[in-house]
Amino acid sequence: MEPAKKQTATQSQKLMVFVLTMALYGLATLFTELIPKFQVGIVEFSVEYFLFIPLTLSMLFDPLSAALGAATGELVFSEIMLGQFGGLGELEKFITVTIGVYMAGRMVKNPQNTKMVGVAAITGTGLQLLMGTVVDILKVQLAVEDFEAVAGLPESVFATEGFAFLNDLLFSGILFCLLPTLFLVPKLYGKIEPLLGMRPRDKKTGLGSINGKVILGSLVAFAVAIGAEMLAENGTALIEWEAEWAESGTALAIGMVAAAVVAIIALIAMKSSAGKGNAERS
């Protein structure tokens, strides 16, 4: 028995888990992106998350590969493929999904212990939703100038975000994360692992429960997500300063227009002289 060797899957097995989670979760998020949400009153019935897929896989396989695969799958399938890539916001989503799924995966030592699976599933979902809510509130505060001054806006943002959090946790969390995970984990346990050439997770092959290191790592990652927002705040000052500088002269703007026109004329001239096709790298 070499526990150190048994604990970690080989590199190619990790890649398999990554590809598996990415493909499945990507497919699921594509559906959620395409299926319209419907609202009954103010309660939103959205199939917000098929988060049960990465949750299940992270409890059965290497949690980190599954978590990264899920986040990448969501990014690639539902954001990039549909052209809804949102820049900075995606980083935050990527990190929160990774943390939520990874935590849930690390919490489960024995996938046959249904109680623990349930607790882990709802904790992972709640964690992801909570982090998303915090970042969302920060985002609106950043985007709207004089946030406090607009009548009714701060309260409404807190209310909508808080309500959305509870709604998602109670509706999507239980219906689409907790129940399917409870159904799938015991059913897949021992069946899906041999397909990837691995041994089912038990006391020997498990990674051990959450320790301080994991929590610290997650906190650092979440700090990075918040840090991106703070960076944006600093960037605001920087670019606004530049804008002021630009405002100081209409002449400067005219200069920019003139430069652009000259560049366009020069490029057209160069293009026609160079002829079609194999243009030189400039």
Binding site: M16, L20, F50, I53, L57, L179, F183, L184, L195, L196
Partner: peptide, 15 residues
Amino acid sequence: MQAFYPLMLNTAKRS
């Protein structure tokens, strides 16, 4: 939800 069970097994093989 239940359809994901066979899908998971098939995709595992494929991956």
